[in-house]
Nucleic acid binder design. Sequence first.
DNA 1: CCCAATAAAGTTGTATACAATTAAATTGTG
DNA 2: CACAATTTAATTGTATACAACTTTATTGGG
Lengths: 151, 151
Amino acid sequence: MTGKATMDSDKTLLFDNQVCFPLYSAANAMVRAYRPLLRELDLTYLQYMTLMLLWEQPQMTVKEFGARLDLDSGTLTPLLKRLESKGLVTRERDKLDERIRVIKITAQGKALRQKAEGIPAQLACNIGLDKKEAVQIKQMCQRLLQSLAED
Amino acid sequence: MTGKATMDSDKTLLFDNQVCFPLYSAANAMVRAYRPLLRELDLTYLQYMTLMLLWEQPQMTVKEFGARLDLDSGTLTPLLKRLESKGLVTRERDKLDERIRVIKITAQGKALRQKAEGIPAQLACNIGLDKKEAVQIKQMCQRLLQSLAED
DNA sequence: CCCAATAAAGTTGTATACAATTAAATTGTG
DNA sequence: CACAATTTAATTGTATACAACTTTATTGGG
């Protein structure tokens, strides 16, 4: 047995050496940065991303949302109900397969897109990364995601 | 007025062009990856990071936790109460300033550190990034955090 | 010394995340 | 066709996040 198990100065357990915690904090900070901008649309960050999908493709199933957003029905069902109660989507059943819930964007949901158009530019100003860095961090996160997705 | 406001093909509102969403998803996936490892310690990721701070410095105030974890009392108070109810910390008042809550790690909390020693190595195996990439993503997130912290 | 301003935590209410379980519909196989 | 296995969502319970507000204690100016 090596001394590792009883080594008291194991640097891998030092807070400032954690790789993942900055990721966690940065994600929280990012959502916080979006909040004042999305407030005017009365949307949360996740609701905003959900609508963004529907601005590209006017209807989607819960399962498809799960695949795109990497979230399960435990998160999605209440999320979609809230969007429904705001009048931004409808939640119908698939006529051919009653298990499937088909989410469709409403006219009101589509109209929100206009109000959202300034948001990406506004956030880019705050975020303080140039385009190259932005692409890098995006690719790095995507690589990380792929690695973590491999069961 | 430019055509921008009415431009329908604004690429900045396309889901797959979002820089921040991979960050958001990667943070979620990271917490998910930790979960099975932390399950044996009966800790959540945030509880684990909180204890990690106390393994280095045996007592800390709520305010100090807030500065290190970038979280407010609305998150920290219930978190610390849960750690207290597990017997891992105590929550005393500062004798000299009764506003201040002093959190101290217990013997039981210290003992958990031994059980945590394998976690960093186990996670590094799953995470699929080499050391250089890990450092890069960490630095990028820290840069992002700094930018977002500038009010 | 008094008391307004400030500081530190705590509380309340809303919205994620997600494990574990359940419910309902469909599919596949004998 | 019967029915077990599978698929798709929904539900339940726990733990973050955080805005907005409240409570309690301390500080600082007059």
